[in-house]
Amino acid sequence: MNKLMQKRYLFILILTALLLLAACSNSNDGESDDADTSGDTDEAAEITVDSEVGEVTIPANPEKILASYNEDTLIALDETPVAKWAIGESVQDYLEEDLADVETIEWTLPLEQVLSIEPDLIILDHTLDNYEGSYEDYAAIAPTYVLSEEEVNDWKVRLQKFGEILGKEDEAEQALADYDEKVNQAKEELNDTLGDESVAMMWVVGGKYFLFEENRHTADMIYNELDVEAPEIVEELGKGEEAWNPISLEKLSEMDADHLIILGYEDDEGIEALKNSNVWNNTDVVQNDQVYYIEDESNWTNSGLVASEQTIDMLVDLFK
C-alpha cells in the first residue's frame, strides 16, 4: 500500500471513530434530556401538602375541583368548581353571577353524586361528620384535602391555603392586598357618613330573629375591620357560638342601634310581627326611620373574600 492510500485509510478510520463518538454522545444526551423531562413532568404533576388528616398528594393543576361551601374562595382565585353547594333548591345566591351554570351537589356530598362528577381534587371541611361518606370514601374517588379548623373559620387563612394547593400563591396575596385597600377606602367613607353612629344587623327567617354578634359572619368585618360602632344590645350578646340562637321579640324592644339592617323577605311572619308590634314601633331606630330592608342575606351570612367585598359595597351604598 503506497503512502497516499495509507493516509486516506487512516483519515477514514479517524472520521468513522469521530462519527461514532458523536452519535453515542447525542444518544446519551437525548437519554439524559428525556429523563430530566420525565422527572420535571412528574414533579409538576403532583404536590404533597399537609392537611388536617396528614400529608396528602394532590394534582398540581386540578381541573375538576369539588370544594363544597368553599366556592367563594375558588372564585376569588378565578377557579370554577365542578359542582356547587346546595341544600335542596337553595344555593349561595351571592355567587350565582359566577356559578349560574354550575351543577349543584347536596351539602352532605352523597357518594353517588361525587362519583358521577368525577372530580380530580376534593376539598372537605374539618367537620367530617357532616358528610355522607368517610374521608376514606372520598379519598378513594379522588385526592382529598381536609381543611383545618383555622382554615375553615378564617377565610383569609383559607384563601392562602387554596393558593398553595392550586399553585396560585401570588394571586392569593394580590387578592388580599386589594381587599385591604378596599377596606381602608370604605372605612374612610363610612367614617364620613356614619361617624360614631351604631349599626346592628339582623336576619329574620321563619318568624325568628337572629341578631349578628360582633364576630358572626361578615359582622366580624363590619365591626372589627371597618370599625363601625356596635350598639350595646350587640355587645351584650358577646362572642357568637357555633349554634346561632334567635332572640325574642321582647328583647328586640331594647334595640338601641342608630341604624338597623334587616335581612329577610318582608312577607316573613317575623317581619310582619315587628311591624304590628307597638313596642317595636316605639323604638328610636324605627321612630327615626333608620331601618333598612335587604332581602338577600346570603353574602351577609357567609365568610369569604367575595362575600366580604359585596357586603362592603352594599354597606357603603346604604349610608351614602
Rank of each mutant, 00 (worst) to 15 (best):
I122C: 04
G238H: 03
T283P: 15
I14C: 03
W280C: 12
E52Y: 12
G88C: 13
I122P: 02
T283L: 11
D268W: 00
D125E: 09
T218W: 08
L74Q: 03
D227E: 14
Y265C: 02
R216E: 15
S90N: 11
T127V: 10
V291I: 11
A100I: 13
P62F: 10
E136G: 02
T127I: 10
L252Q: 00
L109Y: 10
L13C: 04
P246C: 01
L124E: 02
E235K: 10
L18H: 09
D120V: 05
S32M: 07
N302C: 11
L121F: 08
T144K: 10
T37N: 12
Y131I: 06
A219K: 00
V157S: 15
G207N: 14
E55H: 06
T193Y: 06
N245L: 06
D268M: 02
L211V: 15
R158K: 11
L95W: 03
T104Y: 14
K320R: 01
A177I: 11
G133V: 08
Y223Q: 10
I105P: 01
L128H: 04
L260H: 01
S68A: 09
A17I: 03
S298Q: 04
L128T: 02
D33H: 08
L237P: 07
K251F: 12
N28D: 01
Y265Q: 12
A100P: 03
F210S: 15
I122V: 11
D289Y: 10
A140S: 09
E31R: 00
N299W: 02
D317N: 11
L318W: 09
E151S: 07
E106L: 09
N2L: 07
T48V: 08
Q6M: 10
Q287M: 15
N153I: 12
E254F: 04
A140I: 03
V56E: 06
L109T: 00
K182P: 04
L226A: 12
K239W: 05
L128Y: 07
H217Q: 14
M5W: 06
H217W: 14
W244K: 01
V102Q: 01
E46M: 09
F162V: 12
P119I: 04
P110E: 13
N288R: 13
V183A: 05
A200M: 15
L77A: 08
E297N: 11
L111K: 08
N2Q: 11
G163I: 05
A100N: 14
D180E: 12
A67R: 05
D34F: 00
S68P: 09
E197A: 15
V91L: 15
S38C: 08
G238S: 03
D296N: 09
K187H: 05
S298R: 07
I222P: 00
E164N: 12
D284C: 13
E164T: 08
G207H: 14
E97V: 14
G30W: 00
N153T: 10
P59I: 05
G270E: 13
I262K: 00
Y292C: 06
F319M: 12
E43I: 05
D29L: 02
G167C: 01
D36A: 09
P143N: 07
A172I: 06
D154L: 13
N130K: 08
P119W: 05
G133I: 00
E149S: 13
K161W: 05
G133F: 02
L66H: 00
N26K: 01
D268T: 07
V183D: 01
V234T: 12
D180N: 11
I58L: 04
N153Q: 13
E169D: 12
E106Y: 14
I14Q: 04
